[in-house]
Each structure stands twice: as structure tokens, then as C-alpha cells.
């Protein structure tokens, strides 16, 4: 069967559900953000949209899993899925690149210019006399008030170790899958999920600490902006990744996947490694230097 011709599904119903879901979700968010009279329906619309999207994902993945387990996918279909996942991850890399770009630009150009370096001499003299370029900073106007930063070799270091370990555990799971040892597979999967959850726990702690004790908020000038947007989007990816890992763990328990046929597993593993690598970059550029 694996060498049969290319499977082309007919009449996909989930995509249109997904489009409607996205439409509701973003319209709801937009209403919500705007406040004002119609804001009341915003949260509800957003929630309904999100629920629709989640429903769509369940339905869509269920279809795919069913087809996969029925053996409809030959190696070419598998290769298409792989291509899809690789390029999707590449697009995510570029999304993060935009925010890293903002961080580097601010640190290497914007802040020094405000401090009078290079072409910024007159900017500093006329607009911000006395302002010196330092990092971290919340700018010449001290936007958001005094704040302190989260030290790198503390919880962030711990979180680095947690994520690195989870990269190892998922590799162990992969080995177990290749050797068809179900028990070990499930164990390592659950361990990975647990590490993901632990990471999130510490990150939430860190955010609470930052807001309550350090005075560091999203509004703390350019430092707060880049810090929270980078770590925040990363945290969202960890959340999604953890949920996907959990789903895969359940599928492992349900007896899905074979040593030669487990694209779903690998896709999630790739995603998890990607999240891992982004964190390493974050740890280095946001916390350490």
C-alpha cells in the first residue's frame, strides 16, 4: 500500500470552519482592544472563534490520523507532510527573527543614537541632554519607571537546563519508538510534557516576580518591550508545543505510530527542538549579554 499513488482527499470541511474561526477570533480581539460600546461582545466573539479553531484542529487532525492509520498515505504523502512542517518551522524562525532584529537594532543603533553616539550627536544635545546610552534602558523619558532586570544565572538558567533536558527526553522517546518499546516511549513522552509544563511554571513565576517586585513590565521602555515580547512569544510556543506533545503521548498510548511510519511524532519533535533553539538564543541575547 505504501507505494500506491498519491492520496488526494475530497471535500475537506474543516478548512472553512477554520477560516470562520479565525475570522471570529480576530474580529473579537479587535473589538475587545478598541474598548468602547461594542467591546462587550469582543471577548465572546474571540472565545467563540478560538473554540471554533480548536474544534477545527481536533476534527482536522482526527481525519488525518484516521487516514494515516488506515494506511492511505504513501511515502510521498509523508514527504509532503515533512516539507510542510520544515517550511512552517522556517516561517516561525523568521517571525522570531523580526523581534530579535528589533532587539539588535535597538541595542546597536537606536539607544546609542539617543545617547549621542555617531549620527545621534544633535539628537542627544537638543532633545535628551544628559541621557547616556546604557542597556538595559527604558529610554530618555524613563518610560514605565524604574525597573530591575531578571538575572540570567538564576531561574532562566534553570529553565535552560529544563529545556535542554526535554530535548534529550524526546530524543529518548524517539529511540524507544524506533525500537518499538511502547512503555519506554510513553514514559519519555510524559517526561517531556512534564518538563515543558515545569518550564512554563517557572516562566509564569518569573513574570509575576518581574511585575510585582522588579517593576519590569511590558511598558518598561524598549527593554521591557523586547524582553516580554520575545520571551512571551516563546512561552506561547512552549505552551502550544506542550499541548502537541501531550496529544502525541496519548496517541502513543493508543498504539499509534510504527517504527517506519510516525510523521506526527517527528513533526512535534522538530517543533520542540525549534522551541528549544529559540530559547538558547533568547537566553544568550536577552538574559546574558
Amino acid at each position: 500500500m505504501a507505494q500506491g499513488s498519491y492520496y488526494v482527499p475530497h471535500q475537506a470541511k474543516w478548512p472553512i470552519v477554520g477560516s470562520i474561526g479565525l475570522f471570529l477570533m480576530v474580529s473579537g480581539f479587535a473589538n475587545w482592544m478598541n474598548g468602547g460600546n461594542t467591546a462587550g461582545i469582543g471577548p465572546w466573539m474571540a472565545a467563540a472563534g478560538a473554540a471554533t479553531v480548536i474544534l477545527m484542529m481536533f476534527g482536522w487532525f482526527a481525519d488525518v490520523i484516521r487516514e494515516s492509520e488506515r494506511g492511505l498515505y504513501n511515502t510521498k504523502v509523508d514527504a509532503s507532510f515533512r516539507q510542510g512542517m520544515i517550511w512552517f518551522i522556517f516561517s516561525e524562525v523568521m517571525f522570531f527573527a523580526a523581534f530579535f532584529g528589533a532587539l539588535f537594532y535597538a541595542r546597536m543603533f537606536a539607544v546609542p543614537w539617543l545617547g549621542g553616539v555617531g549620527t545621534g550627536a544633535m539628537t542627544n544635545e537638543l532633545l535628551y541632554p544628559g541621557f547616556q546610552a546604557t542597556w538595559p534602558t527604558n529610554g530618555p523619558a524613563n518610560v514605565g519607571g524604574e525597573f530591575q532586570t531578571v538575572p540570567a544565572f538564576d531561574v532562566p538558567l534553570l529553565n535552560t537546563l529544563i529545556l535542554l533536558t526535554s530535548g534529550w527526553t524526546i530524543t529518548m522517546a524517539h529511540w524507544a519508538l524506533k525500537k518499538m518499546k511502547r512503555g519506554a516511549l510513553v514514559f519519555w513522552m510524559l517526561a517531556t510534557v512534564a518538563l515543558g509544563a515545569l518550564f512554563l511554571f517557572y516562566q509564569v513565576e518569573e513574570y509575576i516576580h518581574a511585575y510585582q517586585d522588579l517593576g519590569l513590565t511590558l511598558g518598561s521602555g524598549i527593554y521591557g518591550s523586547t524582553f516580554f515580547m520575545l520571551t512571551g512569544f516563546h512561552g506561547m510556543h512552549v505552551t502550544v508545543g506542550t499541548i502537541m506533545l501531550l496529544v502525541i503521548a496519548f496517541r502513543c498510548m493508543a498504539g499509534h505510530f510504527r517504527p517506519d511510519h510516525h510523521f506526527g511524532f517527528e513533526a512535534v519533535a522538530w517543533y520542540w527542538h525549534f522551541v528549544d533553539v529559540v530559547w538558547l538564543a533568547l537566553f544568550l541575547f536577552v538574559y546574558v549579554v
Binding site: Y128, G130, F131, Q132, G139, P140, A141, E146
Partner: peptide
Amino acid sequence: ERLVSADRAA
């Protein structure tokens, strides 16, 4: 307010 923040920044 502007002076204070400029000061602080300095």
C-alpha cells in the same frame, strides 16, 4: 516630569 525623567536617565 520631563526634567525628572531626563535626570533619572542621566
